[in-house]
Design a protein around this nucleic acid. Structure first.
Length: 270
DNA sequence: ACCACAACCTGGCCGC
DNA sequence: TGCGGCCAGGTTGTGG
């Protein structure tokens, strides 16, 4: 489901409730979602550990646990993290539950079961081959210019590649390209300096606004308290095939990139 | 370097 | 009601 704004919204929600809580029970209903170490070791290390912090990098979340280490989660397409206070009815079809020291629980749901958990002794984030966060100091116009220079690939797959900028997925790539008025099939090297600058700004603005909305809830994504984000109300092109462009009224187009849909306005995006 | 495709899974929706 | 086909926000590995 989730791209940077969704994962960050979940992180913020959990950062309010998890730090200081101790894990008293570990319930694993789908062993395959535990990637490493083995399920018994995973369970043993988590039991009795305490949450100290929750961090995000791109679409990855890391729960810092004392003394277990770093619990890394990727939600892939349909993973959900739901926190419920004590004595609340569990969510449907959860795959993992952590019972915490105040009676609350953290649940993991994942219809498609692509997501998973890994436990590390040391921080795994520095080893991930991810580009800069789009709202960080490292994401400078100079970096942007350098990374675009001479690149032959088309701009849509380029923006999806996490090693150039971390955190964009299918929704925000479509939306950023619309805002920048750039056609998704343009080769990266063909972008003018003005278009490069527009795209840079568009990436930052769409991520900033989606964060302010608590993310985009379309199918599976909900915040950690189970409520919806609201950026779906502000999408210009994503999932709007055939509906009028909000700028020029022409019906929104969709094209397939491999198996993935790209939405765009054929009049506004050149 | 780049592209296309498959794999990992399940469920919802549409048309017949 | 039922069934087949298609769709879905991500990542990784293959082969060309």
């Amino acid at each position: 489901m989730p791209e940077l704004p969704e994962v960050e919204t979940i992180r913020k929600g959990l950062a309010k409730v998890l730090p200081g809580r101790k894990i008293n029970e570990v319930e694993i209903l789908a062993p395959k979602i535990i990637k490493k170490p083995s399920v018994p070791v995973f369970r043993r290390k988590l039991l009795g550990s305490r949450f100290t912090d929750i961090r995000r990098r791109g679409k990855y979340l890391v729960f810092d646990l004392d003394p277990a280490g770093c619990l890394m989660v990727h939600l892939k397409l349909s993973g959900r993290l739901i926190y419920l206070p004590a004595r609340r009815v569990p969510p449907e079809k959860y795959l993992l539950a952590l019972s915490l020291s105040n009676g609350s629980r953290l649940y993991y749901q994942d219809i498609r079961r692509f997501g998973g958990f890994s436990l590390f002794e040391k921080d795994p984030l520095p080893d991930l081959k991810l580009g800069p966060e789009p709202l960080s100091r490292e994401f400078t116009p100079e970096y942007w210019r350098k990374i675009l220079a001479g690149r032959k690939t088309r701009v849509k797959p380029f923006l999806l590649d996490q090693k150039f900028v971390a955190g964009l997925g299918n929704i925000y790539v479509s939306e950023a390209l619309f805002r920048a008025r750039i056609h998704p099939d343009r080769p990266v090297y063909s972008l003018s300096a003005k278009e490069q600058a527009r795209l840079y700004e568009a990436i930052q603005s769409v991520i900033r606004e989606a964060l302010a909305c608590g993310g985009t809830s379309i199918q599976d994504y909900v915040k950690a308290d189970g409520t919806n984000g609201s950026f779906q109300e502000r999408l210009f092109v994503y999932r709007r095939k055939g509906e009028p462009c909000l700028v020029c009224k022409r019906p929104i187009s969709v094209k397939k990139d491999g198996s993935r849909s790209t939405y765009f306005c054929s009049r506004c995006q050149k």
